[in-house]
């Protein structure tokens, strides 16, 4: 269909007149940020609180724990509260390696992607976005995307140090991580803001349309509160 390509681009150029794309070239190389809502302009600790408030506003549940050691108990407590069997599918993510799962010998933990037969997944996240209480996750050998969508319950282990103000801060972090192939994103980047929902039957909002019915965040208060632009917090 190269004919269509030439035809379409030709028509566009015809309507443009003088062609000077320097502004577009500059935009792609400098990637200017737009307006970032002032609600995110908060001291680090308050930013984590904003993340929690916003996540709960979109019907995620949040359990704040002191350290990675508390995560197995928190997960077991969540499973019990939902009357779920004591079994989870865990992402093969090194971020989760410091969690002492064997402290809960009755909790059955398997690791890998899912074919849809697992009721509960536990994954890490790349970042938490305080602005809207969104979780930023991306695909990779350690973080299969199927875990984010097929199970009925998605449990995400997030650290306070991963909470960022805005999506833009998340993008900058991801770009830094992708230094081997600049401007190349992982196959899938998910911003997850609350559980799956629909309003397609008489505009009545119901949870659990096709994705997880519940989104549960176990937030580890790991003391270090970072942002990708820490200099902005000088003096607060």
């Amino acid at each position: 269909m190269s004919d269509a390509r030439a035809e379409i681009l030709g028509k566009i150029r015809q309507s443009r007149g003088v062609i000077d794309d320097s502004a577009a070239e500059a935009r792609l190389s400098t990637r200017p940020r737009g307006i970032i809502p002032a609600r995110t302009d908060k001291a680090p600790g308050v930013l984590v609180d904003l993340f929690v408030t916003q996540a709960e506003f979109v019907d995620a549940s949040v359990d704040r724990v002191a350290s990675a050691d508390d995560v197995p108990d928190a997960v077991a407590a969540y499973l019990a509260s939902q009357n779920l069997p004591s079994e989870v599918r865990l992402a093969p993510d090194t971020q989760l390696d410091d969690i002492p799962w064997d402290q809960r010998p009755t909790l059955l933990v398997s690791r890998g992607k899912t074919d849809g037969s697992h009721e509960v997944s536990v994954t890490a996240a790349f970042a938490g976005i305080a602005e809207t209480g969104s979780l930023m996750l991306h695909s990779g050998p350690e973080s299969p995307s199927t875990l984010n969508f097929l199970p009925d319950h998605h449990v995400v282990v997030l650290r306070a140090s991963q909470v960022r103000k805005s999506y833009e801060d998340g993008w900058d972090d991801l770009r830094r991580q992708m230094t081997s192939r600049p401007n190349t994103l992982p196959r899938t980047v998910n911003f997850i803001t609350g559980p799956s929902r629909t309003g397609d039957i008489e505009q009545k909002i119901l949870m659990g349309a096709h994705g997880p019915r519940r989104l549960h965040i176990v937030l580890i208060d790991d003391g270090f509160i970072g942002t990708s632009t820490p200099e902005k917090f000088d003096g607060i």
């Binding site: 809207t132 695909s139 990779g140 995307s145 196959r187 980047v189 997850i192 803001t193």
Partner: peptide, 19 residues
């Protein structure tokens, strides 16, 4: 404020991706 799922897809699965 944001839809439940905002998803960015870039290319096919990578060689070491599992799904």
């Amino acid at each position: 404020e944001f839809s439940s799922y905002t998803t960015f897809s870039t290319g096919p699965r990578r060689d070491d991706d599992v799904d």
